[in-house]
Amino acid sequence: MTARSLRISRRNTDALVTSLMLPVMLMLIFVYFFGGAIETGVPHLTYVTYVVPGVLLLCAGFGSAGTAVAVSEDMKNGIIDRFRTLDIGGTPILAGHVAASTARNLISTALVLCIALLIGFRPTATLAGGLAALAVLIAYIVALSWLSAAIGLLARTPEAAGGFTFLMLFLPYPSSAFVPVDSMPGWLHGFADHQPITPAIESMRGLLLDQPVGNSPWIALAWAGGILLGAMALSGVLFRVRTR
């Protein structure tokens, strides 16, 4: 199932190029168009160093949201009925999409990181810090991919499922991805501080720059675990309802 999902991704060249290039373009826009006017709130911290962890999470969220479209297309074109005649259940099918999403996202993340290094990003992470940042990123990707699979089962058309990608593009903005939360209007602080993206970004930023992270990684993993368990349970129910 994973190999099948990866082959489908390879054939869908337009979507693949978009998922790879859009985060890179957004990072370049923020760094070169707006970076000179944005204060990071941390002395001696350049904006490119501040923004890269947020772009990595944006990249992962956008790529994971594509799982919704892939699952919705499977439900629409009848392939699920063929799989069921082969005694293949819903969990392997959806897990294949999630595994393929994780692989695609790690590749796009590596591309974004390489471009970031070329334009001045200089991480100072230890080996343990780098691995911990990778763990937070993978947990975030897997959780959002399962949530996207549930959205794909809920949506009646691939076009409707595609709307989930816009939510994933929007969610990092009211967080600490691009500007410090303290610079936002006071009424927005509560949401920005207590949504799943912010602790993940703060964890990755601190781990990649070898700075104190407090309990942010545990909060980020708790959010990812909660989303994952809820999405897997919802996906199981929705799959049974859609394939009656």
Rank of each mutant, 00 (worst) to 15 (best):
I38T: 10
V31E: 06
R82V: 07
G41C: 10
A65W: 05
G63Y: 09
M25F: 09
I88Y: 11
N77C: 11
L58I: 04
L26N: 04
V31H: 05
A37Q: 13
V52Y: 06
H44R: 10
P53K: 05
S64L: 05
S72N: 07
Y50N: 07
V55Q: 10
I38M: 13
M21L: 15
V31Y: 07
I79S: 15
H44E: 14
L28T: 02
V55R: 00
V51D: 03
V69F: 00
I79P: 07
M25W: 06
V55T: 08
L45F: 07
G54S: 12
I79N: 10
L28S: 09
L56S: 08
S64I: 00
M25P: 01
F34G: 07
P23E: 12
L26P: 02
V69Q: 06
S19A: 13
G66N: 11
V24G: 12
I38P: 03
F34K: 10
E73V: 06
G90C: 07
I29N: 08
F34A: 11
G35L: 05
V31K: 07
N77T: 10
K76F: 00
T40A: 05
G61L: 15
P43T: 04
F83K: 08
P23D: 04
A65D: 09
N77V: 00
Y32V: 02
R82P: 03
G41S: 11
G89H: 11
Y47G: 07
L28H: 00
G63E: 06
F33P: 01
S19E: 03
N77Q: 13
H44G: 09
P23M: 13
F33D: 09
D81M: 14
I88V: 12
G54C: 08
R84K: 15
L22G: 03
L20C: 14
M27Q: 01
S72V: 03
G90W: 08
G36E: 07
T40H: 04
D81S: 15
T85A: 14
M75A: 05
G36M: 12
I80S: 07
E39A: 13
C59G: 03
A68I: 05
Y47W: 04
I38E: 06
P43A: 12
N77R: 14
N77F: 12
C59W: 05
T40R: 08
A68H: 11
Y47E: 02
T46C: 00
S64N: 10
T49D: 15
F62R: 02
H44L: 10
D74W: 00
G61I: 00
T67S: 12
S19N: 13
F62G: 03
M25V: 01
V51Y: 05
I80G: 09
M21V: 14
A65I: 07
Y47C: 06
G54V: 05
I88Q: 01
T49N: 15
V71C: 12
V55H: 06
F33W: 09
K76H: 12
M25R: 08
I80C: 08
L58Y: 08
A68C: 11
G78R: 12
F33V: 05
P53Y: 02
I79R: 14
I29W: 06
T49V: 01
I29S: 11
I29K: 10
R82I: 01
